[in-house]
């Protein structure tokens, strides 16, 4: 096994006042890996994700990313300009609430095309063609290209958000409960779609979820968080089938049988 990690996280800590949201978190994410962060609400997983993705500044620790464009960079020491450029070219971020990740006032095509235009694409026809291709890849009818996401169902919005992120061919995608709040049948479709895209595009991803079924389907590795700390980590099926820590055992035992 050669190469180097895509993301190296060391001793990451974030406090809100006296409350520790995440404490001393460290891991390496390797190219092509999908890492799940699981834990109950308030365990610090979303804070951790935001610190990893450069959306929140940690109080201590470092996040080193192996950038395709500029080699190893410390995400939190980059200038804001370079960090923002990174987040809209080499990274993606899929929000739980698609409305936060989409421009609700413009068409699906414009939503998908924005990243392309932001990096200088100036050919309307080509942008539109790329947007059409992506609409197909996320299984939205092509004749919805000029419709606004306000007219879309929750599942379609989430798929549109995924397309909007992946159109720039990112290397690393952060996902915060991407199927949260959706009907079970809609969830299944999105999970299947994400699974295929991650596999085919050789994406690396960090996925926050409280749903262990989602974690089992999408991730290679898991980190289990409790009270801001990582209490267990390892291969996904091993953590779920042979949980070691009391908290993980409790989480696994809490799932209703399918």
């Amino acid at each position: 096994m050669t190469g180097r990690p895509l993301l190296s996280v060391r001793e990451l800590t974030k406090r809100f006042g006296n409350r520790v949201a995440c404490c001393d978190v460290g891991f390496d994410l390797w190219p092509g890996e999908v890492l799940g962060i699981v834990g109950e609400s308030g365990s610090g997983k979303t804070t951790l994700l935001n610190c990893l993705a450069g959306r929140m500044t940690p109080d201590a620790g470092s996040v080193i990313y192996d950038s395709n464009a500029s080699g190893l960079v410390d995400v939190h020491r980059l200038s804001e300009a370079r960090r923002r450029l990174l987040t809209r070219t080499e990274w993606g971020f899929v929000n739980q609430d698609a409305r936060e990740g989409l421009r609700m006032g413009v068409s699906a095509g414009a939503n998908i095309g924005e990243r392309l235009m932001a990096i200088g694409e100036r050919h309307y026809g080509e942008i539109r063609q790329t947007a059409t291709d992506w609409l197909g890849r996320v299984e939205i009818e092509l004749d919805r290209l000029d419709d606004r996401p306000t007219d879309f169902s929750g599942g379609m919005r989430q798929r549109l958000q995924i397309a909007r992120n992946l159109v720039s061919n990112p290397w690393l995608v952060f996902m915060d409960e991407p199927t949260g709040g959706l009907d079970v049948s809609v969830q299944a479709r999105i999970l299947d779609l994400l699974r295929g895209l991650v596999e085919n595009l050789h994406l690396s991803a960090v996925l926050v979820t409280h749903d262990l079924g989602v974690a089992r389907l999408l991730t290679h590795r898991l980190m289990v968080m409790q009270g801001g700390r990582v209490v267990e980590d390892g291969l996904t099926d091993q953590v779920l089938d042979d949980p070691q820590h009391a908290y993980t055992q409790m989480l696994v035992a809490s799932i209703l049988p399918a």
Binding site: M1, W30, H220, R221, L235
Partner: peptide, 25 residues
């Protein structure tokens, strides 16, 4: 490490369990 185990599973080690873990769709 997980990535080592996964690589071994991908190329070297096959496993037939009693039950198929069904992937939706």
């Amino acid at each position: 490490e997980p990535r080592v185990t996964l690589d071994v599973r991908r190329r070297t080690l096959g496993f037939v369990s009693q039950f198929l873990r069904v992937i939706p769709r």
